Simulated assay, not measured.
Amino acid sequence: MTTSQNPFGVSISVDDVIENLGFFDSWEDRYRYIIDLGRELPEMPIELRSDDRLVRGCQSQVWIDVAESEGRLQLTVDSDAFIVKGLLAVVLAAFNNKTASEVLAFDISTYFEELGLMRHLSPTRGNGLQAMVTRIRDEATRRL
């Protein structure tokens, strides 16, 4: 089980995301769940919303800050779009509070396949999601 802690102490795991999305019959309900996940994320401090943290290749504005504490990556994220912030929460379940090696070893493609995510996102949203993952993996690579 892969678990990520947010600053409010709420745990979300990859397994939880997969299981919870499986409860919903329609993608409309799944999108609502993903948006709700994003609403649970803490607000990114305004000073972290800088150009160097802006993810290129996203349709919406997306900021990712990666810090390291005790060998684990601490991700702070934000977006100006509700659904994208929810997608960031899905990504955080996989990557937040993990070592750089764990981030790079995690099979994000299989995770997205289990969620059925890429089939239900527009091509531009899908490209943006991949850009977010690439940004986090690049940061993990720099820390090896």
Results as ranks from 00 to 15, higher is better:
104 L>K: 09
99 T>A: 10
96 N>Q: 14
118 M>D: 05
13 S>D: 01
68 E>Q: 12
118 M>F: 01
79 S>D: 04
87 L>C: 11
73 L>Q: 04
78 D>E: 07
134 T>F: 09
24 F>M: 09
117 L>C: 01
23 F>Y: 03
23 F>N: 10
139 E>R: 15
42 P>E: 11
5 Q>N: 07
48 L>P: 02
48 L>Q: 12
11 S>D: 10
115 L>M: 15
144 L>Y: 00
123 P>H: 00
99 T>Q: 08
75 L>E: 06
31 Y>I: 13
142 R>G: 13
132 M>R: 07
89 A>M: 05
26 S>K: 13
122 S>L: 02
59 Q>E: 12
130 Q>C: 00
127 N>R: 14
34 I>G: 14
7 P>R: 13
134 T>S: 14
124 T>C: 03
51 D>K: 12
86 G>H: 08
126 G>F: 01
126 G>H: 02
100 A>C: 02
78 D>A: 15
42 P>W: 01
70 E>N: 15
55 V>R: 02
51 D>C: 03
48 L>A: 11
140 A>K: 08
17 V>M: 14
122 S>Q: 00
77 V>K: 01
121 L>H: 02
116 G>I: 03
42 P>L: 06
98 K>H: 12
113 E>V: 05
134 T>I: 14
36 D>H: 15
22 G>P: 00
28 E>L: 13
86 G>F: 12
51 D>T: 12
97 N>G: 07
54 L>Y: 09
24 F>P: 08
123 P>T: 09
70 E>I: 00
44 M>Q: 15
41 L>Y: 05
116 G>M: 04
37 L>I: 11
5 Q>T: 05
34 I>Y: 10
81 A>Y: 07
115 L>Q: 06
138 D>K: 02
69 S>Q: 09
53 R>Y: 04
140 A>R: 03
87 L>V: 11
137 R>Q: 15
121 L>S: 03
10 V>C: 01
132 M>N: 06
136 I>A: 04
90 V>Q: 13
48 L>I: 01
19 E>T: 13
77 V>I: 09
78 D>S: 13
95 F>G: 00
24 F>D: 08
141 T>S: 07
136 I>V: 09
129 L>D: 05
109 S>M: 07
79 S>N: 04
11 S>C: 05
6 N>I: 07
91 V>L: 15
137 R>W: 04
111 Y>D: 13
12 I>H: 11
144 L>K: 03
2 T>D: 03
143 R>L: 15
96 N>C: 06
99 T>I: 14
102 E>G: 12
76 T>Q: 10
99 T>V: 14
42 P>N: 05
